[in-house]
Nucleic acid binder design. Structure first.
Lengths: 127, 127
DNA sequence: CTCTCTGCAAATTATTTGCATGATA
DNA sequence: TATCATGCAAATAATTTGCAGAGAG
């Protein structure tokens, strides 16, 4: 694989966020760096980066496919209040199983993120 | 919501399989029952059934959205050999976590299903 | 110089919607 | 008979592909 500034731009954009963005967002941000980059190039480079393991793709039930430059082992919390996807360190999670043939797993939590819970508490205290 | 044979057919098709099919498959099978059913009706009924909780939608990284009539709490194993998605009973899984605000989680295992592992063993024994 | 990568536009594929008609309660 | 659901076709969204030319090594 050859070096191309387009591929680097796509990768850097993804590295600079923890928001697990979708293709449209990545495309918009990358255009700020390379104004004439094409959406096809963004798709192609995301596939490339995925195939060499530099990024991950993630599917959260009911949301569009999103991408993540954090390839370390971690879980996600999908916030049902604000829709955000928050990284969860595996030190907070303990999974045991007795299933043969498994080499890895993905775990996604659904609930309310810290931020939203804090906002709720704040508004309750006012009353 | 009213009774319609189209909705019943979509639901029955999904109940009669554990293969977590995608919309195209569900549509094809439903046409065997109601030959002139439209794909739009299939989509609309899947949404309906989803919203009343009679079915689940599942996203496995890199695969199209699939549907499942098994709404009980269970996990999935995505087989990296044959692509099949196999149900895993939660009695085989133990998850502990210290994350606030969580009300449920989805866990997906990746690896090789029983069937594929058996086939591998069989072909090794031959040699 | 060679071969990969790009931009563009067109082609696919997936999903949703508008609307007149048909079916259910 | 009052709605709700359907089929059809067209609209929209998401993703992929073909191809001629540009860029990397």
């Amino acid at each position: 694989m050859r070096f191309s500034k387009q591929r680097e731009a796509v990768y850097n954009v993804l590295c600079q966020t923890t928001s697990h963005p979708d293709v449209a967002w990545i495309y918009a941000r990358t255009r700020e760096i390379i104004p004439n980059i094409s959406i096809a190039t963004v798709y192609r480079n995301l596939q490339e980066l995925l195939s060499i393991g530099k990024i991950k793709k993630l599917s959260a039930e009911g949301y569009a496919e999103r991408y993540d430059a954090n390839v370390s082992d971690h879980a996600h919390l999908v916030c049902s209040c604000c829709g955000k996807i928050v990284d969860i360190d595996m030190s907070q999670v303990d999974v045991k199983h007795s299933i043969a043939g498994v080499d890895r797993y993905e775990i996604t939590f659904y609930g309310c993120c810290d931020e939203c819970r804090n906002n709720k508490d704040a508004s309750q205290n006012k009353q």
